[in-house]
Write a protein that binds this DNA or RNA. Structure first.
Lengths: 265, 265
DNA sequence: TTTAAATGTACAGTATATGATACAACTTGA
DNA sequence: TCAAGTTGTATCATATACTGTACATTTAAA
């Protein structure tokens, strides 16, 4: 099975990048010399240099001829740190410009898994859409949604390109009550990689959300993929104790601009 | 920067394996034909075949000449679906056997990033540990922790191998109050890949948690990496409206075995 | 039975990755 | 100033990866 393993250059690159990210450096911000790295990883110096060149281009390290290779502090642009309680509201409140690219909009027969999650009737179609959301012109999320057709007909292609789906659903009169969400990690497939401007095989943060109405019927099935360098989920938690059992409880994120003030309704 | 990207065979292999693991298949257990995959990924059919050969050798797919390529082990073992509010308590309550492998235990100078996150005094060392947690004998999480040395000395290597760190911290008298947590996706580096028994370059769910005491001092910095095929974060949310602003609020997961009964204290 | 479509096999040419080596240019400290 | 150590550049040889092509074998449906 030749060719399935990562190339040596890539392995060295990954290891070094990880060491830098984790701050696991021998002494103060200095990487070992190329010869030492080559010996440590059992590869040629040329290979080490290729990995270092990539790290340098990404702005993670600086190399000075004759002196050495140095890790640059405070790496690069930090991701948007979004509380899951209301991502979009936060972004807007932060004054960041967001835009949406609508890649698909049609009605189709959903897969069995989605049909059962949304509790659809047999043969019921869904409104299907794929959107890419940009912040300051840069793509950061890839959203695939399924909405039961009877609800999906209440909005148009133009609506979806202009407003968040959730607000369109509430406009249609649906009583949104609860949702379940799962978070995992997946690799970028070619189509998603192209839409998000990352390489195939990059790690993406994936969330799957199912939204239910007050009557228990499924309203929306959302599969979202995020670039981890531009988007991270954030949670604030407090330690609670009830009936002798200690656990964590999440704290509702303060509205943007506010500060931890907790006024009831 | 040649050579830093994964080889094409590997990209195809990773993406396909990820698709299979995530059950993201077009129709029922059948993979698209090799020609279609080659076109989709922009590689030659030979390359697709190399990736498929590896997947076949790993027992993930079966190929039948003239018929097609089929995904085996329908659905496979589903991941543990853990509510972040108390992962371990849930696992134990579910009657699953968990074990810990202690890979590192020492005291060291933390990186500047960790020192500032924990608000350490200049030169203050941390108790450093790396653990791998297993469920039913299978590794599913890789935990790297930093604890200020003054707190870290209250537990031993044996303690850490036997009990959750959080309970050791609370045993030491620390008043744990709150924590912040971020969730992202990362690629498996060689060391983590070996510990979790995955391949280099696999997608992992990563969480970084910082725990604070009542006096505001940092108590623990945790970097956790999870296998997404064995572990997924789950959240239940309800739609709330306050002062005309609609948003999501998380629901505390019911204790295992319970059902949504919400008894105060 | 026929036909289309799928996987299996083979081979040769090209592109890329890796290694080995040598030397130049620069920095640091003795 | 000198010497040791470090990164930068260049070149050639070899190994591996990738592609394109052609054809064989098997399956499944018309």
């Amino acid at each position: 099975m030749a060719g399935v393993e990562p190339s040596k250059t890539r392995q060295v690159y990954l290891v070094l990048r990880d060491r830098i990210a984790g701050g696991r450096l021998d002494d103060q911000g200095t990487l070992p010399p190329e010869q030492a790295l080559a010996a440590e990883y059992g590869v040629s110096r040329v290979t080490v240099r290729r990995a270092l060149a990539e790290l340098e281009q990404e702005g993670l390290i600086a190399r000075r001829r004759g002196a050495g290779t140095f890790v640059l502090g405070a790496g690069g642009a930090k991701p948007i740190v979004a509380d899951f309680s209301d991502v979009l509201a936060n972004l807007v409140a932060m004054g960041r410009e967001t835009a949406v690219r609508l890649l698909a909009f049609d009605y189709r027969e959903p897969s069995a898994a989605i049909a059962s999650t949304l509790k659809l009737n047999a043969g019921e179609k869904t409104q299907f859409s794929v959107r890419v959301r940009l912040i300051d012109g840069q793509p950061f999320s890839h959203l695939t949604t399924h909405v039961p057709q009877r609800i999906g007909v209440t909005y148009t292609e133009a609506d979806l390109a202009a407003r968040p789906l959730l607000s369109l659903l509430e406009r249609s009169g649906v009583q949104i009550e609860r949702a379940t969400q799962e978070v995992t990690a997946v690799l970028a497939t070619p189509d998603v990689a192209a839409a998000l401007d990352v390489e195939v095989g990059s790690a993406l943060l994936g969330t799957t959300r199912t939204v239910f109405a007050a009557d228990g019927s499924g309203v929306e099935h959302l599969s979202a993929l995020y670039r981890p360098d531009r988007y991270a989920l954030h949670m604030e938690m407090v330690r609670t104790e009830a009936a002798g059992v200690r656990r964590w409880a999440t704290v509702l994120a303060p509205a943007a601009g506010d500060r931890i003030t907790k006024k009831a309704s």
